[in-house]
Write a protein that binds this DNA or RNA. Structure first.
Length: 436
RNA sequence: GGAGGGAUCGCAUAGUGGUCUAGUGCGGGCGCCUGCUAAGCGCUUACUCCGAGUUAUCGGGGUCGAGGGUUCGAAUCCCUCUCCCUCCGCCA
């Protein structure tokens, strides 16, 4: 959520910034509602102030009436005064209620409108309307030369009997996977490996959150109200399945004021993630790349505003370190304005090399949300002096497990159909190669 | 699922219709005093919205888990909801 004061005071600057992401949100309606809101509020508060002082007067006079009766004096005159004040207060009450009835829908619609405005891109974000304008920041590792035609990971998985998509479809439907034997163990090994690195080497606190959350949590991180179509919902209980650990982990500190000396707060979490993938029909229907349910190890940071872009660099480096240790070739790209997610001010995607695709494929997305989520979630920090301020939030995948499995199978495959286990996983898996 | 109890300013608690502008203790901050330390003394210590002002700040509204209601007036009375605790039932 953007600051209404920023929209009010510098609407042209906001419009220009949003144009950078190809969003033509009409700020006029917001500005109009804001204007009406402030006018109504002024009128209501003036009447409230008057009513408060009238009621206070009633209280004082009532005490005097009591005193007069006790002393046997006549209280008739005082009681007439009390009657007048009560009447005045009562009619003010009606006027306030009337104005309140006008104000409420204005405030509701203003909030709804604000929740639909995307974040402002950072000045370093490349200009462009779609993915073709994304910038390659760096490439790490060289794609391997194959002396044979590399197979797709879904064929490798089925040939080795470690991934079964047909049975997954029987159990649940399309876009689900059943891992078996060494496949299931590889999935588990990767979860443990990533959590171990992020918590032991990079200082993240490991958490294990709920994967069903309420709508307040989904709204705080920006999935709701705009992207309900992408989420699985448990309607009977008004709960939602998380599309990423970002949601429950960021919401750990919803409504909190964090002492500045505790910042940066860093969490890593493994969770399954659930996405409806509505609108992705026919795209990447095979394999592990696009699933309704997948595992992910997530990184989340709460930081002081001044440090958030430096923290984005280290968060991205923390995610990259996993690929380096797994010795998988990858590149880092900076998303252009048009490709940026709704809540993000800046995003680096990390893309891993997939031989069968003969291209780089997203395996992690690392974003700085600045105060966009913090404002929705009311997450603040208390500086050494002065009022509480909004933190900046960041998160990134460290990494998506299913896509990592796909990358390992494709990059480490051998001509005989077996797959070499990456060095760092050998102790986790207790095997050197996966073969039939 | 059933029955009962609870939610107040960082923490603990007081407050059952009008000096509650929410008291007190602890904790925190500032200052005074004191060879040092400890103690003592004084002051101070929530957030938010609207308006005014160059800042400091000032005026007003709101907030005692949340939302409604009764009333001239609600922390206090009534209703609904959320969460926590105890007991019963069920259960990995």
């Amino acid at each position: 959520m953007l600051d209404i004061k920023l929209i009010r005071e510098e609407p042209e600057k906001v419009k220009e910034a949003l144009r950078k992401r190809g969003s033509d949100v009409g700020l006029e309606e917001i500005l109009g509602q804001d204007q009406v809101r402030r006018e109504l509020l002024g009128a209501i508060e003036a009447k409230r102030a008057e009513r408060n002082s009238a009621s206070e007067g009633v209280g004082k006079l009532m005490r005097e009436v009591g005193q007069a009766r006790k002393e046997g004096r006549s209280s008739a005159e005082l009681e007439v005064e009390v009657g007048k004040l009560k009447k005045r207060s009562s009619s003010l009450g009606e006027e306030i209620a009337e104005l309140d009835n006008h104000l409420r829908p204005v405030e509701d619609s203003l909030r709804e409108l604000l929740l639909l405005v995307p974040n402002i891109p950072h000045e370093t974000v490349p200009v462009g309307q779609d993915a073709s304008k994304n910038e390659i920041v760096r490439r790490v590792g060289d794609p391997r030369e194959f002396g044979f035609e590399p197979k797709a990971h879904w064929d490798i998985g089925e040939d080795l009997n470690i991934i079964d998509f047909k049975r997954a479809a029987k159990i649940a439907g399309a876009r689900f996977a059943l891992y078996l034997g060494a496949g299931a163990q590889l999935e588990r090994a990767l979860i443990n490996f990533m959590l171990d690195i992020q918590s032991r080497e990079h200082g993240y606190t490991e958490v294990f959150p709920p994967v069903l959350v309420n709508k307040e949590s989904m709204t705080a991180t920006g999935q709701l109200p705009k992207f309900a179509e992408d989420l699985f919902k448990c309607a009977a209980d008004d709960l939602w399945l998380i599309p990423t650990a970002e949601v429950p982990v960021t919401n750990i500190h919803r409504e909190d004021v964090i002492p500045v000396e505790k910042l940066p707060v860093k969490y890593t979490a493994y969770t399954p993630c659930f996405r409806r993938e509505a609108g992705a029909h026919g795209r990447e229907t095979r394999g592990l790349i696009r699933q309704h349910q997948f595992n992910k190890v997530e990184l989340v940071k709460f930081v002081e505003p001044e440090t958030s872009y430096a923290e984005l660099e280290t968060l991205t480096a923390d995610a990259e370190s996993i690929l380096q240790k797994l010795e998988l070739p990858y590149r880092v790209i900076s998303l252009c304005g048009g490709d940026l997610g709704f809540s993000a001010a800046k995003t680096y995607d990390i893309e891993v090399w997939l031989p069968n695709y003969n291209e780089y494929k997203e395996i992690s997305s690392c974003s700085n949300f600045e105060d966009f989520q913090a404002r929705r979630a009311n997450i603040r920090y208390r500086p050494l002096e002065g009022k509480p301020l909004f933190v900046h939030t960041l998160n990134g995948s460290g990494l998506a497990i299913g896509r990592t499995v796909a990358a390992i199978l494709e990059n480490y495959q051998q001509e005989d159909g077996s797959v070499i286990v990456p060095k760092v996983l050998k102790t986790y898996l207790q095997m050197d190669t996966i073969s039939v």
